[in-house]
Design a protein around this nucleic acid. Sequence first.
DNA 1: CCTGCCCGAATTGTTAACAATCTTGATTGA
DNA 2: TCAATCAAGATTGTTAACAATTCGGGCAGG
Lengths: 184, 184
Amino acid sequence: MRSDLISGKLDFDQPIREQKLAERFGTSRGPVRDALLRLTQEGALVYEPNKGVRVISPLSEEERSVVASMRLSLEKHCLSKFMKKMDENDRHQLSLLLERLTSACERASLPGVAECDLALHRYWVAQASSHLETMWLGLSVRMIMKYSRLTKYGDIATEHQRIVEAILAKDLEKALYYLGENVI
Amino acid sequence: MRSDLISGKLDFDQPIREQKLAERFGTSRGPVRDALLRLTQEGALVYEPNKGVRVISPLSEEERSVVASMRLSLEKHCLSKFMKKMDENDRHQLSLLLERLTSACERASLPGVAECDLALHRYWVAQASSHLETMWLGLSVRMIMKYSRLTKYGDIATEHQRIVEAILAKDLEKALYYLGENVI
DNA sequence: CCTGCCCGAATTGTTAACAATCTTGATTGA
DNA sequence: TCAATCAAGATTGTTAACAATTCGGGCAGG
């Protein structure tokens, strides 16, 4: 469900019917309701009593820039903390996630790119602090729903390759710099 | 429920039983579940499958300072936007909210102070942008759960009186300064 | 033609019963 | 004595039926 949202498959303001989703996922309305409420608090949907949920309207340019700067400062903090205690397994995971993103970019699969992009960033945030991870998710989901740079999949792959390269080389300064270039 | 959480009435890691809450609020488990899920995504509770929810562990000093700086930058942006289009009704609401906070401080009522404190800040954030409001709420709820300055109710009242005074006088610089002193 | 009202369909909100899972404590055997 | 196992109780997860609310179209009156 979330991947439908971040990939922009659903139109803004379009209402979401519990029954439809229940049939689609082969379950009853109860669990669907749970999931919708969670997505609501995550920020991808808005809820109105007795009217259900609908896809949230996109952020204005101004709002987006505020959110982006918050996300960037949060992610920079997490990344530097992560790099201090990164171990061999972390390096492996990072390479794996980068590979998936690159492959999604080659396939030019929008949902795949958006999802892999988030997953990669999420890794170092989650490793740094589970508290901060949930906050980061709220910011990022909203930003990625307006994934406006879709046209150049190659750029996305390159940007992330640079970041991961710097992380693996334990070059904090360079990693933070490329991260700043990427999170806009 | 939320006011119980932000006032610290519940212990950390203490599990929360759906049945108890259902009886307390005179309803069934369904709506209780909805509410708990929302509080989970808001960040005040953590959820584990088949184990229910429990009160989240407090932020570390480091995490708290990161969150505080994010909240401050967000709130500063909202406050300056709010002050540009503030009308007579806004002034009235602000005075009202301040009065309530002051009164709660005089009564030395911890839940009341925490709630009124949040409500006041929330007002200008909500007026500036509903998108940013939900993000702000997530940050603030987590911060206020560690409301460590409880001992000096008088200070809390004074700090907010200064902020509101500056807002009403349309003195942006001073308002932002006092806000920065308050959000720590 | 327009306005307000009413009715019915569609949708969300709530409930209680049942299924699945986890926790706890006693029991059994080494 | 200690550890593993098992069973009973407690708790969460799911479902289907029912209640309440909203939305849209038709209809009468002006």
